[in-house]
Design a protein around this nucleic acid. Structure first.
Lengths: 159, 159
DNA sequence: TCTTGACTTCAAGTTGACTTGAAGTCTTAC
DNA sequence: GTAAGACTTCAAGTCAACTTGAAGTCAAGA
């Protein structure tokens, strides 16, 4: 017989939204927001309150780190979909997904490093000319990040 | 006698907003937006149309590059204030301001590189544990970028 | 004459990642 | 018994960086 109710003897202790918030440093409002977006899931207690599985903490940590790398929540959601939904993800599961970040990180680091090198060159020569200075002639726009015109961000190409 | 009207013999040819847009790849709406924000300035023709000085192109290029580095328009505005407003900025003026980017770039590159190294370590050991894994315990939040919770971006500290 | 294109202003809309506020439930402490 | 604290939902607000739309001006060309 499959138990549907949460018997405390069988399942590990679930966490309230406040507990997850305290442990991750993420506001409860943000956690609800993540749940709306499908990034995390919860069960409900009799009271209607959310109860999170313990590995939610790791999931939230994953989200935070992915954001630091520069991924949007949508991209992170897609990455999280690769995790097994039925069982608790194993170490291997997590590292597999995290390994996908490697090339993204490399790309971002390369873009910034190139920018820095060009900047050094430009400061050295004092040119900063639109025509001759490589700094202002980015051919690597797809790798850029941070705020800016949408089409520079590489998310979508301009019409 | 100081001439107030724009005599084409005296001043270099001014650019229309369309010309600046074509040369920089920035939409006219964005250029007006930048002007509202005080990032660029213009004079007006008799028709009421904007007329930009030639060095506006460089100014816009500067803005674009600064955005690639990860600066907000407000930060860029503050940087541009360091430029001489009366005379056309010289090469030296530009490079001085651009040199300020250097440490910022370094910081961003270091933060990402650290993240990458930690990621490599974590993939190697397969831990990714909240407690033991350095990847998820960022002590360098101030240097992060990209979207994410405001207080992680280092723009303003949480209350 | 009329249309096209380039420009003008000003208000409102968009996207991402959330936060804030209002109104309500439930439990625990005094 | 009542007040505080933790939770609920749902709608609306916020911020950055723009874009879009409406309504209008002006000059040049067919």
């Amino acid at each position: 017989m499959k138990s549907r109710a949460l018997s405390p003897n069988v399942v590990a202790k679930r966490l309230t939204i406040g507990e997850v918030a305290r442990r991750t440093g993420v506001a409860t409002s943000a956690l609800r927001f993540y749940e709306d977006k499908g990034l995390i899931t919860s069960e409900r207690a009799d009271t209607g309150h959310r109860r999170y599985r313990r590995d939610t903490i790791r999931r939230v940590s994953f989200i935070l780190t992915a954001q630091r790398i520069g991924l949007t929540l949508d991209q992170i959601a897609r990455a999280l979909e690769q995790l097994p939904s039925r069982r608790t993800p194993s170490r291997r599961d997590w590292t597999t997904v995290a390994a996908n970040w490697r090339p993204l990180l490399d790309e971002r680091i390369n873009a910034l490093t190139q920018l820095r090198d060009r900047l050094d060159g430009c400061i050295g020569c004092g040119c900063l000319s639109l025509d001759t200075c490589a700094l202002h002639n980015p051919d690597d726009t797809a790798a850029t990040n941070g705020p800016g015109p949408r089409y520079l961000l590489g998310d979508s190409t301009p019409a």
